[in-house]
Amino acid sequence: MSARRILIAALAAAFSLVTACSGDPGPRSTLPGGPDLVGKSAEAMRTVKSAAFAMETENTPQLQVKKASGRLSATGDADGTLQLDFAGSLQEISFVLAGDTVHFKGVTGGFQKMSRSELAAIYDPSAILDPERGVVRLLSNALDPKTEAEEKVGGADAYRLSATLSQQILAAMVPGIAQSVDGTLWIDKATSRLLKADLPLSAGKVTVSFTDYDVPVRVTAPAE
């Protein structure tokens, strides 16, 4: 083979190798930045008028409230159920928070009353949608938020983030949390609203989820 043919063959082989190595990798998914996501989510949550929530603990975190679920309005009214740990005994309480009065009852018996401040010492669902105390403040003060992946939560497309969340703000919503938390958040891609939060604690974790955003909620006190 002549030198010219050898050179042409070598160049062709080199060109083929470069082409194979530098081919089109296809579309890439670029995740948005964590600070931008939590900022948008805080603004989206500020406009929420109502939501349904569920809170559940796993294992044995040192919290009196083991489960909670219900409906929330941005005006501060709420209704639902709490599962409380009284000296190792679990008791389920139904509550209706309307105005400054909380109506509550156990599995048996009728409704009794307590003040909003008395309920807040145990669990204050009205804080969740309060921009000055709840989710908006929590997101606005999240430290080192990092977007990790895209996932589905309850059928909705969401971004999963990690962030350090303030103990002081978390405790306003779930009394008994005594540490800042390296938590995981899921933020809805379409609306930027918070869908779910995992909060690892000593001896367990708390999971909070939200659904039914802006579905009308009318909370009325039970008949006496």
Rank of each mutant, 00 (worst) to 15 (best):
L161A: 04
D124N: 15
T101W: 04
L129P: 06
P222V: 12
A156M: 09
G176V: 04
K66Y: 02
G154A: 10
P200F: 05
E43P: 11
K146M: 04
L119C: 13
E148N: 10
A149N: 12
S209N: 12
I93H: 06
G204Y: 09
F210D: 01
A142F: 05
A171F: 01
V219C: 09
G26L: 08
L31M: 11
E43K: 15
A42G: 04
I6R: 15
V208A: 09
A163M: 01
Q112D: 12
P222Y: 10
G204D: 08
A44R: 07
Y159Q: 04
G33E: 15
R218W: 00
V96T: 10
D77G: 12
D198C: 00
A190P: 03
T108F: 13
D100S: 14
I122A: 10
S50D: 11
G88I: 02
R133I: 08
S69Y: 08
M173D: 11
S117Y: 00
P35K: 05
K205Y: 04
D85Y: 01
G88W: 07
L37S: 04
H103R: 11
V48K: 06
M114I: 12
R218M: 05
K40M: 10
D188E: 15
M114G: 13
T191W: 02
E224T: 12
L139G: 00
P145R: 03
V102C: 11
D157R: 14
F111Y: 15
A156N: 12
E151R: 12
L129H: 07
R116I: 08
A197I: 11
D157T: 11
Y213F: 15
A121G: 11
L63P: 00
